[in-house]
């Protein structure tokens, strides 16, 4: 068995990344159903829920934890950094495929049941409504990959530089994002740039962009940990 497969099995068995995001999603779903049941037919209540974000947000934390806990653990058991990263790539790939398929299947159930009998849009989102089930699954998988890439960078920073490193990242990203926003507003072209981006073909916006983010995150995380020392 290769080291990557071993790390993959550790991640699956450990349950850190596999269970929690789905458990939180299930809780979010239950709360949403209860909320809409209580709201009844009140027309003032918007039927589009944002609860599905719970899965992606917790996936960031779960993936970050996989890096901060499982990387030192495997290094302590004579694993290598390269082996860990390859195992994570395998795991995240499987996680993304599973996410795409499961969420698409649940979308199908939601449509078939008339929004769980209450016209609720929990698994559907307006931007993906026009896509085929295959396209939707691909986009959801790509979004999960991007989220995992983001979590990987956070985890790698924590492993290498600790909490102080994370605060530096937040500060630098904040300054950069703020500067871009200020420049966009000052030049008067910010709105046009955003409009130009979202009107591009869906595959470019919702598939290619997340994949680029995921690949960038994975590469950056690898650069950060490839010489990290276990102390």
């Amino acid at each position: 068995m290769t080291e990557a497969v071993a790390v993959f099995r550790v991640l699956v068995r450990g349950g850190l990344v596999t269970l929690w995001p789905w458990l939180i999603l299930a809780i979010s779903f239950a709360v949403n159903l209860a909320f809409y049941a209580a709201a009844g037919d009140n027309p003032a209540v918007v039927r589009q829920s944002g609860g599905i974000l719970a899965l992606f947000l917790t996936a960031v934390a779960a993936n970050q934890q996989a890096w901060t806990q499982v990387l030192p653990f495997t290094l302590g058991l004579s694993g290598t950094r390269r082996g860990f990263v390859r195992g994570m790539v395998l795991f995240v790939g499987a996680q993304a495929v599973l996410t795409g398929l499961l969420l698409t299947a649940l979308t199908g159930v939601e449509i078939a049941t008339g929004g769980w009998g209450m016209d609720v849009r929990f698994f559907r989102t307006p931007v993906l409504d026009d896509l085929s089930p295959g396209g939707r699954a691909a986009v959801l998988a790509a979004l999960m990959l991007a989220v995992c890439g983001f979590g990987a960078v956070l985890g790698a920073v924590l492993v290498r530089w600790g909490a102080a490193g994370l605060w530096w990242v937040v500060a630098v990203v904040g300054v950069l994002a703020g500067s871009v926003a200020v420049l966009a507003v000052a030049s008067g072209e910010g709105g046009a740039a955003i409009a130009g981006f979202v009107t591009r073909p869906w595959a470019q916006v919702w598939l290619l962009t997340p994949l680029v983010v995921a690949a960038g995150g994975a590469l950056l995380a690898w650069r950060i940990v490839r010489r990290v020392e276990l102390r």
């Binding site: 071993a6 099995r9 068995r13 850190l16 499982v70 653990f73 302590g76 058991l77």
Partner: peptide, 18 residues
Amino acid sequence: PYPTRFTVEAALHTAALL
């Protein structure tokens, strides 16, 4: 370093794999 949420069994299983 051990992940605190892992069980003894999971840690031994990991050691066996590596």
